[in-house]
């Protein structure tokens, strides 16, 4: 009896330190199922395909996590992604596709993402509005600006851009390097202590405030980081689709929330990991490829995918709840 309890509490401690463990298990399982359904899905080429399609969602979900840490939410990430996507494409086509222009466009994109995040942070944290409705309002505003920058989809990105994203260096697809950069970035951020502060705010704003944290400012930082990651996600989308589209991010907002939850981060704040959200985004990608490889008729694919995601979401929440009890 005591042994069982100590096992359970050890699991709980482990899960609190690494909330993404259930998601990692799920990822392995989906990976194996994909391999059984279609052995070719294990080739580098197929993996590269999945990675380049879902890398944008990975970045977006990672960004969303920094906001969810403090029990907030950002429903404007998709709109920010769209705005950065059209902005960099327009800048690059205005000034030509030379390497220094591309770098300039990337810098401008990150600045735009950070500014949008700052606006969300001021609105939600500074003015104390309810995050769901306030970021929905800012998403309308940001989509409006995206439509003003580029009214219709289809302006092509310079070839340098998508060639780098889709290309290989030393025989390894570049997207894998981007994933490595993301992991390094997350490791560095974990060392800065900001994540600890965000989680502390999520655990209880009042107690965080009373122990001397500037809660308002910390929540704004969360939104700014989220905006910057939405900009990085926009770079991935631009590399993948090679064009600008003012509506490209709209459907991705809710997927990013789902990925965050799949990765073991609680929407009530205070517990979670950005690494888990990245895994969550890949889980969403692997579910849709599994549905495809398993030979589900095309009309039923969306339903099968939606139902599987719902079940996986429920299982994930239940698992962490059971262990934390």
């Amino acid at each position: 009896m005591t042994k069982a309890i100590s096992f359970k509490s050890r699991m709980a401690t482990l899960l609190r330190r690494f909330p993404f463990i259930p998601a990692l298990g799920m990822l392995m399982l989906l990976f194996i199922l994909n391999g059984i359904a279609e052995p070719n899905s294990m080739t580098v080429r197929a993996l590269k395909g999945v990675a380049s399609t879902y890398l944008a969602l990975v970045f977006l979900s990672v960004g969303q996590t920094f906001v969810v840490y403090t029990a907030d939410i950002d429903l404007s990430v998709g709109a920010i992604l769209s705005l950065v996507n059209v902005s960099i494409v327009v800048i690059m086509s205005q000034f030509g596709g030379e390497p220094y222009v591309v770098l300039l466009a990337l810098g401008a994109g990150i600045a735009i993402g950070a500014l949008c995040g700052l606006m969300n942070g001021i609105v939600v944290s500074g003015l104390r509005m309810q995050a769901i409705v306030a970021t929905f309002a800012t998403s309308i505003l940001i989509s409006g600006i995206a439509l003003w920058v580029l009214p219709v989809a289809g302006m092509p990105a310079p070839s340098l851009f998508w060639k780098v994203y889709g290309g290989r260096s030393y025989g390894i697809p570049n997207v894998f390097f981007f994933i490595a950069i993301l992991i390094a970035l997350l490791a560095i951020m974990a060392k800065t202590g900001l994540v600890t502060k965000l989680l502390a705010v999520g655990n209880g704003q009042l107690s965080a405030y009373q122990s001397g944290l500037s809660v308002t400012r910390i929540r704004i930082y969360g939104y700014i980081i989220c905006g910057i990651f939405a900009a990085l996600a926009a770079f991935c989308i631009t590399g993948d689709t090679a064009s600008g589209d003012p509506l490209v991010g709209g459907a991705m907002t809710l997927s990013s929330v789902a990925a965050v939850v799949l990765g073991g981060t609680a929407l009530s704040g205070g517990i979670g990991s950005a690494f888990g959200s990245a895994i969550g985004a890949i889980i969403i990608g692997l579910i849709s490829s599994l549905v495809f490889y398993a030979g589900v008729p095309s009309q039923w694919q969306n339903l099968a995918q939606g139902a599987t995601i719902l079940v996986v979401l429920m299982l994930g929440v239940l698992a962490s709840k059971r262990i934390n009890q």
């Binding site: 939410i73 809710l254 929330v257 789902a258 939850v261 929407l267 009530s268 039923w300 694919q301 969306n302 339903l303 099968a304 995918q305 939606g306 139902a307 995601i309 719902l310 979401l313 429920m314 929440v317 239940l318 709840k321």
Partner: peptide, 18 residues
């Protein structure tokens, strides 16, 4: 099952769209 409403209804939205 104790699923947060936002997560449950978000998942349900995906099912309905399918």
């Amino acid at each position: 099952f104790g699923i947060p409403p936002l997560v449950m209804t978000l998942g349900m939205l995906g099912v309905l769209q399918g």
